[in-house]
Design a binder for these strands. Structure first.
Lengths: 153, 153
DNA sequence: CTCCTGAGTAGCAAAACAGAACGCAGCTCT
DNA sequence: AGAGCTGCGTTCTGTTTTGCTACTCAGGAG
């Protein structure tokens, strides 16, 4: 199977991974959340090669995760900003961060993500939309949904 | 910068991505959550090449996300099971799935993740551990934590 | 014995990648 | 006016990483 064929696979974990599942894409998104908008700044803050950055940005724009917006600093230049769809990736980053803080941060969390105003830390929690309780993997049962075609995944 | 150097970077989003950020790793983990344990089953359900699978599994075992446990079906064979650390990846998968359902599932969610017993759907929500409220990216303020070294990321 | 099955290895071609050099348009300095 | 700088790419070259197909190897079944 070609990797790209997975995009057709009826699984909402698989499909995002065909877009986000590579070395750099989520790191670029992370920087975008940190306020980075310009080519040169992505390049320097991540150390990604210029050609790689060019096509990752193009892909993110094509996927409508970033938008390419003109601004002027003399002639026209572009900056890359998160769209609403891009913004919606935040829980994924926070879930990664929770895991990273727990298992890959021997010296404690490098960065705290603080709830503005209240001052508490923000985490990605699995919650049931009906009973509101927190769940773990063991409490969850996968079932075919409306988008299923024959085989559930 | 070599990609591997990122593992040293003091950011708990970056560090997990050095382990999980590639085409296959999270797909393997996803299958593990779905109950897949054996080489051949990973190979067939994902369509990943055998050699790739061999070294992705080795890496996951090395990272203690999967454990390699002997069982017998005649001679000794091994199966790969999620460790506690691997189990803790579930919120990341659910966050990916929430996003996938919203933006990449034109026919509706292929799979529903149901809270056992109560029957509601389970989602990854950003919640503040102090006030308990749900947050979005805009409500969150990054601040240097104990593991920071000079530059926050 | 010989075949079958599960779990890998080996070897090679194709794709993805890093890093440095180059292009180019407008600005700024002289 | 001309020289150099800046931001944003593109191109080129060589290295890594992948995907495929074929092979091995050990135990069990016929």
């Amino acid at each position: 199977m070609r990797f790209d064929d997975l995009a057709e696979y009826p699984c909402s974990i698989t499909r995002p991974l065909t877009v986000l599942g590579d070395r750099w894409t989520l790191l670029i998104v992370k920087q975008a959340f940190a306020g980075v908008r310009r080519f040169e700044d992505f390049h320097q803050s991540l150390g990604i090669s210029r050609s790689r950055l060019t096509d990752r940005l193009d892909r993110l724009v094509e996927q409508e995760i970033l938008s390419r917006e003109p601004y002027r600093d003399g002639r026209t230049r572009y900056e890359y900003r998160l769209t609403e769809k891009g913004h919606a990736l935040y829980p994924i980053l926070i879930a990664l961060r929770d895991w990273g803080d727990t298992y890959m941060a021997p010296d404690g969390p490098p960065v705290r993500y603080i709830h503005r105003g209240c001052g508490g830390e923000v985490h990605a929690r699995l919650t049931c939309e009906v009973c509101g309780e927190e769940a773990t993997a063991r409490d969850v049962l996968p079932e075919p949904g409306p988008g299923a075609v024959g085989h559930a995944a």
